[in-house]
Design a protein around this nucleic acid. Structure first.
Lengths: 200, 200
DNA sequence: AAATAGTTTAACCATATGGTTAACAAAATT
DNA sequence: AATTTTGTTAACCATATGGTTAAACTATTT
């Protein structure tokens, strides 16, 4: 069956176009062109633009979300988790720099998407992390901190540089060459920064 | 002259619609409806969708960027700057939560915008901050840190929670009620977190 | 009050766009 | 080999959308 090839061609093209232009900015014709097939085929495999978009979106989302579980469902110490997670996540996101922005943007555009997640198996859950942080605080291993704030801080430091890079670059704070080096440094910097803040 | 009123009505409506739906998702008709005037008037005051959009965009951008100067062109210590800036910026952004996302998204969509900034008077400049940080590091007031990383960290911690809130909420880590309280806490938490990390 | 300039609108227009159809081609099934 | 199913396309359709026009209406000026 050659059919699977077409479907994959479409999905890849759709991914590329949707991530670059968003749902509203993307054109079915452009996706077809980039896939090198007729526009009608898009509707043959995926009924509508909406359905094609959702296929791409949920694929992207399911790439992004499970990464969070590393830090949540692991048995090492908070410090070790932070070291592993930040290195991992910065590396991962720097290989998919447009993913967070895309997902955020499209959830924003259509909050109904959020509902479709509820009940998803491998959505991260903070409970374990909260307990662990509180535990280490009580034992005097780390300084008192609200686990939710800590979690947001970790994510912010890992993800924002990518999401905000257009802004950071536009403002002229950092140029392209510098940026890549800075990101590379961040793979270790972020963990040091956080741990230095919370360690007793 | 009643004319100014119409122009303001249009700008406000355009701001609301563009920020909610982005350039591509916004409809001229919807802007006209929200402004309560005829669609042709949009073209009377602003020649095209593009020009109306740019009016809104640069207004939004000029609201966001100057805030950064607080931390850069001020003579207090690094610690004081961080305290003032984070409180200020978190407060400011929580009053305009969609602004960063909008600006980032649209720069992303059209990188040519970035060029239009170059030469803008009050774009922030990192030089002074760099020197100051290096200075305090040398004096042993704060721990060694790359000033650019520190700056990115500060911005990330202030801005990401807003930009990423759709994602954070969708993942189910934090619900709406909790979120507002968390943001309120962050006005002081962020400064504590950063200072705790860099202070000797 | 007449004329002029500025403001606002309803009705149009051209085009782009998502989606459909009907015919054709290629596999798969009998 | 004949038939059915699946894949692919060019041509088409309905509608949405940014933009225009010409007329009406409202100040402002003379």
């Amino acid at each position: 069956m050659k059919s699977e090839t077409s479907e994959v061609l479409i999905l890849n093209a759709a991914k590329s176009v949707f991530i670059k232009k968003g749902m509203d900015g993307a054109r079915m014709q452009e996706i077809a062109d980039e896939a090198g097939i007729n526009k009608a085929l898009l509707h043959y495999y995926f009924r509508s633009k909406q359905q094609l978009f959702e296929a791409v979106f949920f694929n992207a989302f399911s790439l992004l979300a499970p990464q969070l579980n590393y830090i949540l469902n692991d048995d090492s110490s908070v410090e070790d988790k932070i070291i592993k997670f930040t290195h991992n996540y910065v590396s991962f996101v720097s290989q998919h720099p447009y993913l967070p922005n895309f997902v955020i943007q499209e959830i924003n555009r259509n909050p109904d998407f959020a509902l479709k997640f509820k009940g998803n198996e491998n959505l991260p859950n903070l409970e374990k992390f909260k307990i662990q942080v509180n535990n280490e605080v009580q034992k005097g291993i780390i300084k008192p901190i609200n686990p939710e704030q800590l979690f947001i801080n970790i994510i912010s430091l890992c993800v924002f540089p990518f999401v905000g890079s257009p802004l950071i670059k536009a403002i002229g704070i950092i140029d392209d060459e510098n940026f890549n080096q800075l990101i590379d440094e961040r793979k270790t910097h972020v963990a040091n920064f956080i741990i230095s803040s919370i360690k007793m």
